[in-house]
Nucleic acid binder design. Structure first.
Lengths: 152, 152
DNA sequence: TTGACTTGGTTGCGAATGCAACTGATACTG
DNA sequence: CAGTATCAGTTGCATTCGCAACCAAGTCAA
């Protein structure tokens, strides 16, 4: 039994989560980076547009909890690379409706498939049942970690 | 039942892990940032030296899986701020043995206590039993995610 | 010993990040 | 309407990151 008054990084939940996130993200990052020179944020924006269809940058921020400047720049780059296009919203001329181009959908399909494969392999390695439980617990954390006192 | 051929970010384990890690790290980050202007890497280096005692930068890299340049810079800053000191190893004059100063130990004690409190509150919120299971699963992922094919 | 190779750690530099300040459009309030 | 507050998104700037190239010390083999 460890001394409960001394801090142990290895038992610190944020640390464990970070380690696990790093470990799993890193190798998949290599995939979209090598294939399309994309950054993590760009990949996320693409994935969200791919899944949910056209939406505004603000919506993406709300869904992903990513800073708006980060999203803004990711959108610019994706547009430059011809993966998405913007259209001013007719309802609100401040907002821009983002949607994937044909090329963007192609890329999404390709990376999406690779992500599915990667995820399957990962779950197989840690055990499917455990992986399923893990999903639930992570969702719970995401929902409750910053529930009060943290707006970001 | 979702279409298994279409990719869904919300079921992508690396994504979930990232979200959870972000959510839990962010608010604690505010603590060490506000109190000592420390960065995450600096905090980790401090925490490892605090827990394991004097060791070399290389060892820290091995334990934490953090890039060596990141560690190198964190060490420099911690030294500038008087939290750790370096001594050339008598066995290998390339290596430097890092150890916390008295001040460093003070800071570690303070932040360590805050981390314990934070962790406790977090676990209470998500449920202690679930938190305990989570630990195990995360360790499993960390151990197996990059087990083969990924050296970093 | 000498010369080729590895290793601990640092540095340079371009890219990514975070935060605050800003622009233009919209919504509230009287 | 006028005046103010709010909101979508961008930009500037200082900090951090990641990778490759680099230095100095150590190892190995002949």
């Amino acid at each position: 039994m460890p001394d409960p008054t001394e801090f142990d990084l290895e038992r610190f939940l944020p640390y464990l989560l970070n380690q696990a996130a790093e470990a799993t993200s890193k190798s998949f990052q290599a995939t979209y980076k090598a294939a399309y020179g994309m950054t993590r944020t760009q990949w996320r924006v693409l994935a969200n547009l791919g899944k949910f269809g056209a939406m505004t940058a603000r919506d993406i921020c709300a869904i992903t909890h990513v800073e708006k400047t980060k999203v803004s720049r990711a959108v610019s780059t994706l547009e430059e690379n011809g993966l998405l296009s913007r259209a001013t919203s007719p309802l609100d001329r401040r907002a821009e409706i983002l949607s994937l181009t044909d090329r963007g959908r192609e890329v999404f399909a390709d990376l999406g498939q690779k992500a599915i494969d990667y995820d399957r392999a990962l779950r197989a390695r840690i055990g499917p049942k455990i992986a399923a439980q893990l999903d639930e617990r992570l969702r719970r954390i995401i929902a409750r970690a910053g529930a009060d006192g943290d707006g970001d």
